[in-house]
């Protein structure tokens, strides 16, 4: 052991021999004259136990080196938001279109093939309107008469 220690102080020991020294000094019974050297070897052993006491450390490093997972999640999230927006717009358009279809009459389609017959029918329709107007005028005249009478009474007063 003395020889090995001498080699150690001269930096001539191999890693294997240094391991032997550590094992020797790690044992309980050390000769008094070697107590100091034992303390030094004990120091080396203790120093090796020092560790990075932070459970969150690896997580922090991984988040910093690999933010791509976060990026993908963000991309999916944003795409879903846009898709949801589009779905609402499409649904709204669909409902409004249906609503308009239900309330507005269908486009005018030809009902007669014969122009003569069509002319007759049109004439009939216009005549009916004209007749209705006539009736309306008659009623309006009555109201007018009533108005004139009212004005006359008011004028007298």
């Amino acid at each position: 052991m003395e020889e090995l220690l001498k080699k150690y102080w001269n930096c001539e020991t191999t890693l294997e021999e240094e391991k032997q020294l550590r094992e020797f000094f790690g044992a309980n019974h050390i000769p008094d004259q070697l107590k100091d050297t034992a303390a030094l070897f004990r120091y080396f052993e203790e120093a090796k136990k020092k560790s990075l006491n932070d459970v969150a450390f690896e997580g922090q490093v991984l988040r910093k080196v690999n933010p791509s997972r976060g990026k993908v999640a963000k991309l999916i999230y944003n795409t879903m938001r846009i898709a949801a927006g589009l779905a609402v717009v499409i649904a709204a358009t669909w409902f409004i279109r249906n609503e308009i279809r239900d309330t507005t009459p269908q486009a005018v389609v030809d009902t007669y093939n014969d122009p003569k017959l069509a002319f007759e029918e049109t004439k009939k329709a216009l005549l009916m309107i004209s007749k209705s107007f006539g009736t309306a005028e008659e009623q309006a005249r009555k109201i007018n008469m009533f108005n004139e009478a009212q004005e006359e009474i008011q004028g007298k007063n």
Binding site: K48, K50, S51, V61, L62
Partner: peptide, 20 residues
């Protein structure tokens, strides 16, 4: 990332002691 996690990150204590 897995190889990094399994091979490189375990050296953290050695690097920490050295930096310290």
């Amino acid at each position: 990332i897995e190889a990094f996690q399994n091979r490189v990150l375990p050296a953290k204590n050695k690097l920490f002691r050295f930096a310290l």
